[in-house]
Simulated assay, not measured.
Amino acid sequence: MGKTAEAIAEGVSIASAAARLAIRNRILVETIAHDEPFEATAFAPFARETLVGLADEQDEAAALIKRQRKRAWGKFTEPDGTHDYRDRDMRNLRKRGRQYSGVAQALRRMADDPHVVRTLIEQSRDAAWGDVEANLQRRLRVEGMRPELDPDYDRMRAARMQSIRLVDLPRLAAHKRHHDEAETDAAPAAEPAAPSPRVSGIDVSELES
């Protein structure tokens, strides 16, 4: 029972981490993408649904174990694969079934406890704000970085210059050629010069002086 309790506690810890991740993502979407104010009570339904959904997954796993136990009972031949259980696996399967059911029950109790739900939301909020803060700090470091303060400046400068020579400059030259060709094609053709007036085969313009 001690090992079973430890396994249940570990399963609850993993499920709680998954719930915090899901709630954190929801907080980021609602407060940043949708520009909504943070209200813990607004996320309570989603937090409860997340916990119940994780509990349902554990119950489904326990039901699968029960079916596998029924198929394994009375079989003493060699298994054909990893999940081809035999009678000698009954004890381990029973233990795993209890663990899955125990985790499911614990998660449902958490979902029914307003204090636990609120604590989960606050932890998720702290994680969300931590992500935002880390992103802002990275952006500020990049935008405010001076060459003498960047330890990788000299090492990366050669790569940046090579990228300019091999990628940016040829792309700019190709763009200019395309622009020049487009202007040439769009320019109107020059009108031919009007022929000089002639009278009886004589170029009249030659008489003008």
Rank of each mutant, 00 (worst) to 15 (best):
E6D: 13
I32E: 14
R96L: 14
L140A: 12
G2P: 05
A159H: 09
Q137F: 08
S196V: 09
V199R: 13
A158E: 13
D126Q: 12
K66C: 07
R171L: 11
T77G: 15
R96P: 02
D87I: 00
E181D: 15
S124M: 00
A40R: 06
R141E: 14
K176D: 13
S209L: 13
D150T: 02
L54H: 03
R198G: 03
Q99Y: 02
V29A: 13
P197H: 06
A18R: 13
S16I: 06
E30Q: 11
L107P: 03
N92H: 08
K176L: 15
Q137T: 11
A128M: 02
T184M: 11
K70Y: 08
N135R: 15
P79A: 05
P195R: 06
I14H: 07
T31K: 00
A61P: 03
L93C: 05
D89E: 08
A106P: 02
S13D: 10
E10V: 05
Y153G: 00
A104R: 01
Q68A: 10
A18Q: 14
P79S: 05
A72I: 04
A158G: 10
S205D: 12
P147K: 02
F76G: 07
E143T: 13
T82R: 12
H178Q: 15
A189H: 09
M156R: 14
E30D: 12
D150W: 02
L136K: 07
Q68G: 01
D87R: 03
I14T: 11
E78G: 06
A111H: 01
R98P: 00
W73H: 14
A15H: 01
E49V: 05
D168S: 15
P170D: 05
T119K: 07
F76N: 11
F43M: 05
A173I: 12
A5W: 07
D152S: 02
E133F: 09
K66N: 10
Q123S: 10
A7F: 03
A106V: 04
G2D: 11
I164L: 13
R160P: 01
R146T: 08
P45E: 06
T119Y: 04
K3Y: 08
A22Y: 04
L64T: 11
D35C: 07
E30A: 11
E30G: 02
Y100D: 08
P192R: 06
M161P: 00
G11D: 00
L93W: 01
I32T: 14
G81I: 04
N25I: 06
A190I: 08
L207T: 08
D180T: 09
Q68S: 10
I14P: 03
I65E: 05
V204T: 10
Q123D: 14
A186G: 05
A63P: 01
R155Q: 11
D154T: 11
R48I: 04
D56P: 02
H175L: 15
W129N: 10
M90L: 15
P195L: 06
D180K: 08
R138M: 12
A47C: 14
Q162R: 15
R24Y: 01
L51D: 00
L64P: 00
A159P: 01
L140D: 12
K176P: 02
A134R: 14
A40V: 08
R165M: 11
G130F: 00
E206Q: 14
I8N: 03
A159K: 09
M1T: 10
N135E: 15
L21K: 12
E30H: 07
A104N: 04
A158M: 07
